[in-house]
């Protein structure tokens, strides 16, 4: 930010402060992983130790896996997040294109509604959607987890802003070449918008893999639990005081996203900030 390097003292001070912060940011993760390696007896000694004296990693993780269908939870999480993202692209990308490049009646009104929708969190609409799903008889299904998020006004807004920057000539060229409007969306706009779609995808996957509020409301059967529900359920029913096992469960739930994040940090940070405007 300063446009020039810091002096040696200031540089060292910078590292001292940032390292202290880093320790605070990281310690829950380190604590979680190390505890997941420790047997219950060592945890109950109430002493601050770093590495376990007796490694109980395998039994802790195996306990999680045998006591709850953890694989099923992860699979549910993958199915739900992937379906949500696929549907979001399918529904919102064409709408974003129409809003950006077509003239049709009701376009301004639709865009105004999209802007309004940006302000509304899912929490505000949860009760009516719950009632609707109750009457439709689709509570406790994948559909209940997926459908409310098939529409993403934020996705529409973001992709529309991106499409506004695509030159009209490209679309006109495609029309002259005989590509239909629907063809333009998938053959021309989607490939052109890949960076924006990727950023949105990361945002969407992170948000819905981690979501707890809506699955908690919509799902009652264990078979359909997503990872956050699974780990909360595990704490409540099976491993509330078996801390090593509980930490192993938490580690399993956190791992997929954290691993993906560490592999593609820049994209993740871009994706989440880019979309940070949502609030």
């Amino acid at each position: 930010m300063t446009g020039r390097g810091l002096g040696p003292t200031a540089g060292a001070l910078r590292h001292v402060v940032l390292m202290a912060g880093a320790v605070i940011m990281l310690s829950p993760f380190v604590w979680m992983v190390l505890s997941s390696f420790k047997p219950q007896s060592e945890i109950l000694t109430a002493e601050l130790t770093f590495l376990p004296q007796r490694w109980a990693a395998i039994e802790n993780y195996a306990t999680v896996w045998t006591r709850v269908p953890m694989g099923r939870f992860l699979l549910n999480g993958a199915i739900v997040t992937a379906s949500i993202f696929a549907l979001q692209v399918l529904v919102n990308l064409p709408c974003a294109y129409a809003l950006a490049k077509l003239r049709f009646r009701g376009r301004r009104a639709l865009f105004a509604v999209v802007l309004l929708g940006l302000l509304i969190p899912i929490h505000a609409t949860a009760i009516p959607i719950y009632i609707l799903f109750h009457h439709a008889g689709i509570l406790n299904t994948y559909a209940a987890l997926i459908l409310p998020f098939a529409i993403s006004v934020f996705g529409i807004f973001m992709l529309r802003q991106f499409f506004m920057t695509v030159p009209d000539d490209l679309i006109d060229a495609a029309r002259i070449d005989g590509v239909s409007e629907i063809g333009i969306v998938w053959r021309v706009m989607l490939p052109t918008a890949m960076p924006a779609v990727t950023a949105f995808g990361i945002f969407s996957v992170v948000a819905h893999w981690n979501d707890y509020f809506w699955p908690l409301i919509a799902i009652g059967t264990r078979e359909l639990y997503t990872p956050p529900l699974g780990v909360a359920f595990f704490r409540l029913n099976d491993g509330g005081t078996e801390y090593g096992v509980l930490m192993a469960a938490a580690t399993i739930v956190i791992m997929p996203l954290v691993a993906a994040f560490l592999l593609a940090q820049r994209r993740f940070i871009e994706g989440v900030t880019f979309t940070g405007l949502k609030g």
Binding site: L170, D172, A173, T192
Partner: peptide, 13 residues
């Protein structure tokens, strides 16, 4: 008809 645009309008992908 065929048209050549000022910006060429080639499909970038």
């Amino acid at each position: 008809i065929a048209m050549v645009f000022q910006s060429y309008a080639l499909y970038p992908h």
